[in-house]
Design a protein around this nucleic acid. Structure first.
Lengths: 199, 199
DNA sequence: CGCAATTCCAACCAACCAGTTGCAATTGCT
DNA sequence: AGCAATTGCAACTGGTTGGTTGGAATTGCG
């Protein structure tokens, strides 16, 4: 045994994350990834197999990282709105995951490869939403999450829509943040009330 | 003068719309567009110039088409929610525009070329929202629109998110539709109330 | 028919890219 | 030092792509 193979893999994964996020699966250049990592090209094929599999690895790693870095905590609609705000902040300072997610949706559709790991983490997340909003059905919790994720992920990916609809304003991000938090809080509250009324 | 040049352009535009929607700007193949249109390759360069410019033409045409096909009508929060529902339906039966919009956001960012035409149509749309919700500020109307557009456009583009968060359920689309309509209605109502209270 | 604009055909170019291969150099454990 | 695993290097293959070019065929108006 010799060399630090783990470090090599991490360097490649980091470079690949950047490259895939910027250019997508088809647009990413394997040579660029290798160069940016300061590692030779064949290492990629040796450690990750095809380009597609490297993309899988990147996606799963990044999704899980963000999920653990932005936890859902507390109770009540405001707590859920707070979560939305923190997710928005995270994606505004680092738009890597949003881009990866949309690239995946566009270039691969629903044919997700590394499903197992991701499905588990997602189920946990939905469960956390149900904890924050006691009584809300799993399906509603999922819809709530999809809404927040779509809004927070869409923001850094659709700068044109903002420019076209809102015009070249100042502090657009903070305005948008407040709007999303409000939307999340309001919907969470409505579903909570509904659940309480049904009980 | 001879031949029907307009028809040739339309054939190319239609084929290009399909190809760009499916594969994005970088992923689209000029040869495929020409073949699908039953037209020769050089026509593209003759009529539209570079690939990028053809993409511009496609995007502007499709955006304007959907905007006119899905009008905003009526008054009150429910009317706005109804608009959201119709936009959702339109994008569920024909996911071409959503994909184009996200491709643009990812591959070109905010560097929109054919801005002039699109900006005008968008300003009109924001104005229509203000008509539906009297008293609501332009900025809030824009945010409301951005939210609805992001949610309706995001749905056909992010099938993985639905699969991951909600699981393989039946009738997911109609559930999601109802949720989005409810969200739109609720937010519109909140902003309307706020505007009324301030007056 | 005659003529000019339009279109097709088919080949071509220069560049690019994913993935592979053979070999020499480097590393770190024993 | 010795040795085996790891890595860098550099060239190569097979295929693809955006964009161009020159000439022949087609169209429809006058």
């Amino acid at each position: 045994m010799a060399w630090n193979t783990e470090r090599t893999k991490e360097l490649l994964l980091a470079a690949a994350t950047e490259e895939f996020s910027a250019n997508g699966l088809a647009g990413a250049r394997v040579d660029r990834i290798a160069a940016a990592a300061g590692v030779n090209k064949e290492r990629i094929y040796q450690y990750f197999g095809k380009k597609d599999e490297l993309f899988d690895a990147v996606l799963a790693a990044e999704m899980i990282r963000v999920m653990t870095e932005v936890p859902i905590q507390g109770t009540g609609p405001e707590a859920f709105g707070d979560y939305a705000g923190r997710l928005f902040d995270r994606h505004t300072t680092d738009g890597v995951l949003p881009r990866l997610v949309f690239w995946e949706g566009l270039e691969r559709g629903s044919e997700t490869v590394s499903r197992a790991t991701r499905t588990d983490h997602c189920a946990i997340k939905v469960g956390q939403v149900m904890d924050v909003l006691p009584g809300v059905a799993r399906e509603d919790a999922a819809d709530l999450l999809i809404t927040v994720v779509t809004l927070c992920d869409g923001w850094p990916v659709l700068p044109q829509i903002d420019a076209l609809l809102a015009g070249p304003g100042t502090g657009r991000a903070s305005r948008r943040r407040a709007f999303i938090v409000r939307t999340a809080t309001l919907m969470a509250g409505a579903l909570l009330d509904e659940a309480a009324a049904a009980a």
